[in-house]
Amino acid sequence: MKRDFVIVLVRPRDPNNIGATARAMANFGLSQLRVVDPYEPTWQSAVSAVGAHDILQNAQLCATLPEALDDCTLSLAATALKNRKLDQDIVALPRLPLWLTGQNAGQTALVFGNEKTGLSNADIALCQAVLHIPTTAKQPSVNLAQAVILTCYELARTPIPPAGKTADGPTFAEQERVLAELDALLQAVQIKTDYSAEQRKALLRGLLHKSHLSKNDLFFIKTVAEHARQKIEERPL
């Protein structure tokens, strides 16, 4: 089945990097760009540049990363591995096309952080996998635009076989609705853990990502959790 790619830039600060991203996408046949919470003067400078490509003119501006991932069935966070404790699959860029063949088809987001800090741990936790561009130990990270260029080139250079699974997977938004219902159930039963509310959600999200459940499976889990919560809340005190 068909796989579409979305390039997501999170809080970019340099108009030159934004422009170079759009050119790289055009060079290698990608067209969907989403930009999360850009610095407004930087964004206007990039879009207003002479010869700005249609990709920039048609880019989708998003307030948050979840909004940018809303309709995506798969997402990879591009980051250097130094000083990161990661729980997701780590996919080296040369392996990306092969890795994708084992995943559900649908819309795939490739997520890149800003020039100064990259992606936050919270940003990375929203994605199912981590995309790693191998570099020397002395210089573990690459420039934002360079990372996008290398990724677009690799996808164009190596044809991606049809997806190994026959159906589109659940979207980010669909998984988040299940997560919200499971979290509400845990609150209803007043479960005691050492996790904060955000840590609990992150744990549930990670479990959903690892499970690779179908839409029907997720719908069943959501229905069970919803009915269980309602029964608990209806009990007399």
Rank of each mutant, 00 (worst) to 15 (best):
P161M: 09
V130C: 06
L155R: 09
C152A: 14
T151A: 07
E181N: 00
N143F: 07
D183T: 07
R157C: 11
Y153T: 00
P170R: 07
T151E: 10
T166G: 14
V142L: 15
Q175S: 12
T158G: 05
A145S: 15
P134L: 00
V148R: 05
V142E: 12
G164C: 06
V148E: 01
K138T: 15
L182I: 10
A129G: 01
C152G: 09
N143P: 12
V148S: 01
P161L: 14
E176L: 12
A137V: 15
L182P: 04
R177S: 14
G164S: 05
R177W: 09
A145K: 05
E176N: 15
E174I: 02
A167W: 10
L131V: 06
P162E: 13
P140M: 07
N143H: 06
E154N: 07
E181S: 05
Q175L: 14
Q139L: 14
A147T: 07
C152R: 03
E174R: 14
P159E: 04
K165G: 11
Y153C: 04
V148Q: 03
V130H: 08
L155D: 03
L182V: 01
A163M: 12
P162G: 02
Q139P: 09
P162H: 00
T166R: 13
R157H: 11
L179Y: 01
A167Y: 10
L144E: 03
Q146W: 04
D168H: 11
A145V: 01
P170W: 05
G164Y: 07
L144F: 01
T158Y: 11
I133P: 00
G169T: 11
E176Y: 10
C152V: 13
L131M: 07
A167H: 14
P162W: 02
H132W: 14
A163D: 00
G164W: 06
T136E: 13
